[in-house]
Design a protein around this nucleic acid. Structure first.
Lengths: 129, 129
DNA sequence: CCTAAACTAATAATGATTACTATTTTATTA
DNA sequence: TAATAAAATAGTAATCATTATTAGTTTAGG
């Protein structure tokens, strides 16, 4: 069903080495440092595959890019509207099930994104005014 | 700052009349029934504006489209991986603040999306097998 | 009525993502 | 260690949701 490829391994390694929740393009640039002639399509295909198999997480914050997270255990994301950063935040475990109680819906993953302004951007704002 | 326009009013009306969390394209088709020569760009611009001002909610489930929700009060969304439907689900109120406790992040909105399979799709699956 | 800011229709441009194709790699079996 | 089929890849072209542009129209306030 699924064969080994050093391209995929490199992609996973890059993802596991960061917590910035990168885009496909960012992953592509980093992987190129190891496999210079890797194709952008290969990066997209593998990220798609890995997120469908549950090994990684795919996150849409609505900034026009798909973001990826090597940590697929349940946690929330804090997305800063100003700098665009996506940070991790803890999440009570029983929440996923509780939210889906309704109507026979069978949950597998969840993405919880909190929009707002991060501490750093808030500090900069205060400096200016 | 913000002027009245009947295009924007029609867009809000369409959004408030449904709970399917439509895309810009869907809203466009519905508004055209009332204002036949409305421009798609106008729909996009207004939806963007309204979601930035907090009057509506913008939701990315990762299906390649941006979805919109006329109900901007905090609630979770159940996104079915098979039929693509997005349903509403209740959400404990204090959750938003709790998830953002960390590091001085100041939350404004949150989008909580649970991925899985809805009851209907699950029933169909059982019929087949 | 006048004016400036906000808005619109129509259309062109953008750019992230996906599709396609010929070639190469992987895993398996003899 | 060949032979083979499934899975992957590089490179490139195509897609299409969204954004930008522009000339003209509408709104609101004095």
């Amino acid at each position: 069903m699924k064969n080994y490829s050093r391209q995929r391994e490199a992609i996973i390694n890059v993802l596991r080495s960061t917590d910035i929740h990168p885009t496909a393009g960012w992953v592509y640039e980093r992987v190129r440092e190891v496999i210079p002639n890797i194709s952008l399509g290969t990066v997209y295909r593998n990220l798609d595959q890995l997120s469908k198999s549950g090994e990684i997480l795919s996150i849409s914050v609505g900034d026009g890019y798909e973001h990826f997270d090597g940590n697929s255990s349940p946690h929330a994301h804090l997305h800063c509207r100003k700098c665009g950063r996506i940070a991790d935040a803890p999440l009570k475990n029983d929440f996923l099930a509780a939210a889906a109680l309704e109507s026979g819906f069978i949950p597998d993953t969840s993405v919880y994104i909190v929009y707002g302004v991060c501490a750093e951007c808030n500090a900069k704002e205060k400096e200016i005014n």
